[in-house]
Design a protein around this nucleic acid. Sequence first.
DNA 1: ATTACTGTATATATCTATATACACAGTATA
DNA 2: TATACTGTGTATATAGATATATACAGTAAT
Lengths: 135, 135
Amino acid sequence: MWIPIQIDDKSAEPLYHQIETQLRSLIISGNLAEGTLLPSIREFAGDLKCSVITVRRVYQDLEGEGLLRTRQGTGTFVSHVGDGAREEFRRETVRKALEAAVDAGRSVQFGREELEELFREMVKRKYGEEDNKGE
Amino acid sequence: MWIPIQIDDKSAEPLYHQIETQLRSLIISGNLAEGTLLPSIREFAGDLKCSVITVRRVYQDLEGEGLLRTRQGTGTFVSHVGDGAREEFRRETVRKALEAAVDAGRSVQFGREELEELFREMVKRKYGEEDNKGE
DNA sequence: ATTACTGTATATATCTATATACACAGTATA
DNA sequence: TATACTGTGTATATAGATATATACAGTAAT
């Protein structure tokens, strides 16, 4: 099975992290349905041109997050993520990042309005084009 | 001269980073006026119970950001930060953090409204108490 | 049982971040 | 110039993050 993962060699972001982020997103978004058998660590490593250890780490991490289930000798599957757990997970991910951003603002004496203004700008820039081109 | 820096030994945040963040905040906020002679790296290291190298790194980093000026043999001073540069600096700091947060949201398929809602919650939680106790 | 797949465990290599010691060099003043 | 401060440069220690090779163990089908 083919999983669409794009690796950027020039990025400073660690290899395992790039894979994790993208695979996680595929699962959370439902692009990989519950029960899907993922490629074996060796096959996936071949596709991604990395070692099996790196793929294994990704599978292990996502299993730790409850997104995958593994059975030795059989393979690694997309596990069932209840709506509650899925929402909790999505929310926590974003909440942490937002908290860091608000803390950053406070550390340089950003006022509430000032922060909100900059946030609106960023949202517009990042979400704004979605109506035009659906990449 | 005494600089109010609080070190949390239990924190996972690196020592140099805790010092940098707080000292930067003191300068940006104007609590340390332009031209102020900071403690020597040795004196400051004594206050903070860390090595002079760590203090030096802090001074060096903040000098790189244009917040400090150093003259060998004389000392390290708070440099003049023009209003433009100060605003640019504050804005960039927060902009980066906000961008990371919005990217995190998009990576888990957060919609615009959903993200804005969570942001409002966070702002309320972090800024909300300021009317009650002025710490 | 043999084969050919699965994932697992251990040990290791490499790099970066963090923190340090200590010898060196500039500055100011008596 | 001697002294007593300032910051600087080099070399090093330690821990954690990142990535790997290789030998091991479970599963399923022949």
